[in-house]
Amino acid sequence: MTKIFPWMLALSTADRESCAQDLVDAARASFATEQPHLAISELTSWKETATAVAAGLGSADLEWLDADETK
């Protein structure tokens, strides 16, 4: 799939496998339900993720805020 979607090369091997499976699943669901937006939104989400990873935005440690701690 990287020949068709070269942006997938920015993803790790495991993420490329997940991406490919998610895209196939979304395409099947789109065809089965005649709702193309399912496949389009999945493709867009993965492409934006690859763009963020390529920009170096995936390597930062995150600190999650707990809603109970902010009160």
Rank of each mutant, 00 (worst) to 15 (best):
P6D: 01
D22M: 05
W7A: 00
A29Q: 15
S45M: 14
L57N: 06
C19T: 05
D61H: 10
H37D: 15
W64V: 06
A32P: 01
L38R: 14
A20N: 11
M8H: 01
T49M: 14
W46S: 02
F5D: 09
S59D: 11
W46K: 08
S30L: 03
E48G: 10
R28M: 12
E34S: 14
D66N: 08
D15K: 07
D66M: 02
R16Y: 03
T2Q: 11
M1S: 08
E63V: 14
W64G: 06
L65F: 08
L9D: 13
M8V: 00
A52M: 12
L9I: 10
P36I: 10
D15I: 00
H37M: 13
L38D: 01
P36C: 07
A20E: 07
I40Q: 11
D66F: 01
D22Y: 02
T44W: 14
A14W: 12
M8L: 04
L57E: 05
L23T: 00
A32I: 11
T13C: 13
T33N: 10
E34V: 09
G56R: 05
A14P: 02
H37V: 14
T51N: 09
F5I: 05
R16E: 03
S41T: 15
E48D: 14
E17N: 12
T2Y: 10
D15R: 06
A39E: 07
V53H: 04
F5T: 04
L11H: 01
T13K: 14
E42D: 08
D61C: 01
E17I: 07
F5P: 00
L11S: 03
L9R: 15
A39S: 11
D15L: 05
P36E: 12
E17F: 08
V53D: 01
A10P: 00
T70H: 07
F5R: 11
T13A: 15
K47Y: 09
F31G: 15
S18P: 08
R28Q: 14
D66R: 05
M8E: 02
T2C: 05
E34N: 15
S41I: 14
C19M: 02
Q35D: 15
V24R: 13
F5K: 10
